[in-house]
């Protein structure tokens, strides 16, 4: 099939950026969207123009590197599918396709379709972990976890950190990403000791970078892994509870300082 692409080109963070139109002839339906871009890039290089920069790595839908807004939708028209797993059989001969980077204040454009998603790392860094130093773990089967709990934790843990949720959100909020990790850990027995401090730290860090959630639900629609906004509700509930459960804050840090130390 023959396609026309309208691709966002931007030399760097300070460049204004603009759309450029390219022909993409001879595309076959077995190609992935990124393979189609590979073909276009080879042509561009042959004609002496720089290739379109885009993030990609595993091309199996799991690393979360790729992501672009295709015809106005993060990761394109197919539900539950990352850009790399979107195949050209989802398009028709003669289609014109608009390709843009994630649009979000927290994800500045680095070049063309590449954005800076480091604020996601910052959120995980703040509390998206369980303190479990290497070597001190008990036998894995000592704590049985009901299958339903483990399965739900997994549903949340399936997040690939691609950022489509943020790109889809009119507010540029990162609630879905943050709640997925918070829920994964807060649902499990291993995550209970740090449950309240975790959710507080993650949400507070999130708010340093991202907009506020107003329950549009666009994030859930765009998520290639089908992460549910129920996790956002859970995070909000935990965050609220945490304001009462945080013993340090309730009692006052100074009261606890001498408590049991040494």
């Amino acid at each position: 099939m023959n396609l026309t692409l309208k691709v966002w080109r931007q030399r760097g963070p300070s460049d204004a950026g603009h759309f450029e139109a390219y022909d993409a002839p001879g595309i076959t339906e077995d190609m992935s969207f990124l393979e189609m871009l590979d073909v276009v890039n080879e042509q561009l290089i042959h004609s002496g123009r720089e290739a379109i920069a885009f993030d990609h790595d595993c091309r199996e839908g799991i690393c979360g590197s790729c992501g672009m807004v295709i015809n106005g939708k993060p990761h394109g028209p197919k539900k539950l599918t990352t850009t790399c797993q979107l195949h050209m059989r989802n398009f028709r001969d003669g289609d014109s396709i608009t390709v843009e980077p994630w649009r979000a204040a927290a994800f500045p454009v680095v070049k063309d379709l590449v954005v800076d998603r480091r604020p996601f790392d910052a959120i995980i860094q703040a509390g998206g972990w369980i303190t479990a130093p290497t070597g001190g773990a008990q036998d894995a089967n000592l704590t049985p976890i009901p299958k339903a709990v483990a399965d739900q934790a997994f549903d949340a843990a399936a997040c690939i950190g691609c950022g489509a949720c943020v790109a889809a959100c009119p507010n540029g909020a990162a609630q879905l990403f943050t709640s997925a990790k918070a829920a994964h850990l807060n649902l499990l027995p291993q995550g209970q000791p740090e449950r309240w401090s975790r959710v507080t730290a993650m949400v507070d860090r999130m708010e340093e970078y991202f907009g506020s959630c107003t329950n549009y639900g666009e994030c859930q629609q765009a998520c290639p892994k089908g992460i549910s906004i129920d996790f956002i509700a859970m995070m909000n509930r935990d965050y609220l509870k945490a304001q009462f459960k945080d013993r340090k804050r309730l009692v006052g840090a100074s009261d606890l300082a001498g408590d049991g130390a040494g």
Binding site: W129, I130, A132, T134, G135, G136, A137, Q138, D139, A140, N141, T143, P144, I145, P146, K147, A150, A153, F154, A157, H184, L185, L188, Q190, G191
Partner: peptide, 20 residues
Amino acid sequence: SIIDQCVAQGVPFAREYGGL
């Protein structure tokens, strides 16, 4: 020890209905 370590970190391994 790897399995123990990963479970302690919260890696959601597949479980049977009994929770193991």
